[in-house]
Design a protein around this nucleic acid. Structure first.
Lengths: 255, 255
DNA sequence: TAGTGGTCTAGACCACCGC
DNA sequence: CGGTGGTCTAGACCACTAG
């Protein structure tokens, strides 16, 4: 077609992708609708097959379409909604809100894990791990209470780390990459311990986030983070997988 | 190099990608480390530039590396952890667990929204929306209570839909694609209403998930879903963005 | 079996940006 | 300025699968 107009910095693949996304998003191509074949798109846009192929592959990765060999590409039918929450680094989060942050290490000891924990994280029951309890304070107020277990076999450096400059979560994040993670979010009524630490009434609802991470099958760390109930909320804003990524996410503490 | 061995069905790009991922994950290439240039990888694997380019682009989309012209590609430093929760369709979820599911529409009316809601969803205060309250029952027990608002301008079909066969969430999911979403997760103490509906003690902790979705800037729907406190947890298992996608995710109800 | 997508090549030109 | 990544081409062979 030798398109020569409108090529300021907008690339052909972007135009193709946008056209297809628009047709899907507008409902013009509903779930199940078969997209044009690659050779048809080649003809339509007057480009090589590689270009349309990359576009369609990207849409497939994004989950907008599904592709099969002989059958062509069809608009995917959404399966379920995803909630994507970005668990911010506490210090970063506070800094963005222009608030002061500090943390206190309440406990730091190396202990054997009990049977329940062993089963949960997939380690032998006798294994010794590093246990670190941390209070996160924003503007001097309790923001969250964190109970963490670190596998010293996977993270030997942690054995001598005192977590003075950075709390365990931040320290680990900047040091050890992970390959698998599991999150559990629950609501619990504050017991005496949470009452004392978070300065909330006994029985008031608290948000508990448990995160376990592994690296290639090897357990790395488990964190149980308790937030004061209604004062804190996990917030996530996002677009479908892969497209807009994660434009703005926060975990704030407005009532 | 003209590699000729080991090409059963494992593609060259997969091998390159795996090699790089392994080096990053093992810590051999820590955050900030500069990867080989494309032409170096070409020489190392004896392939064309397109092949290594696609691999590196994929890793960049995945967030494992960052790429800049002239400067090359470097291993990205992780910013924060993400929690990815898949909000299952209630019926699907129950079916997988081999449990019975049904829903009840407790309320269905078209009403103008109040000022607070209008501000929250970005619609004029006078706009009329469809309000649907739904109880989700698994094995006859209250699983969740859902309060939903649907923008009739964006989803005109909803005006005559009675949600008998499928609850509003499922109905919408299979009909309307969204481009942006916002989630808020809170813990609240059950008030009299939740006590009655979810059959939990007044004051017991409940998990509240609010989801608002838009399509290209146009508000679609808002759902506030309340789960009985400790009986239900949101669970997500996942790998870093783009790689393993979402291997197994559930929202189960064990105590 | 024929036609689709999946992968790969050996080039090319260009935009950007660090030196 | 030179070298990097970003994009694109016009081919090619192969694997898979629907009809």
């Amino acid at each position: 077609m030798t398109e020569l107009e409108g090529r300021n910095t907008v690339h052909l693949n972007q135009r193709i992708r946008r056209d297809i996304e628009d047709k899907i998003m507008s409902g013009e191509w509903p779930p199940g609708h078969r997209l044009p074949y690659e050779h048809e798109l080649m003809a339509e846009y007057g480009c090589s097959r590689m270009t349309v192929s990359k576009v369609l592959s990207g849409l497939a990765v994004q989950g907008l379409i599904t592709r099969r060999r002989r059958a062509g590409s069809v608009v995917a039918t959404p399966k379920a909604d995803r909630a994507v929450l970005q668990i911010q680094d506490f210090a970063l989060e506070a800094k963005r809100a222009n608030k002061s942050y500090r943390h206190q290490i309440l406990r730091r000891s190396i202990e054997p894990i009990d049977a329940a924990t062993a089963a949960r994280i997939g380690m032998p029951a006798e294994a010794k791990v590093l246990c670190v309890d941390t209070m996160h304070l924003v503007e001097g107020e309790p923001e969250a209470y964190e109970e963490r277990i670190i596998n010293l076999v996977a993270v030997p450096d942690a054995r001598v780390e005192k977590f003075v400059e950075a709390p365990p979560g931040t320290w680990l994040l900047n040091r050890v990459p992970w390959t698998d993670a599991e999150h559990v979010i629950r609501a619990v009524n504050a017991d005496a311990k949470l009452h004392k630490l978070l300065q909330v009434a006994t029985g008031s609802a608290c948000l508990v986030l448990e995160r376990r991470t592994w690296q290639a099958g090897v357990f790395l760390t488990e964190a149980r983070i308790s937030y004061p109930g209604e004062r804190h909320r996990l917030i996530g804003r996002f677009s479908p997988a892969g497209s807009g990524q994660f434009p703005e996410v926060s975990s704030d503490g407005t009532s």
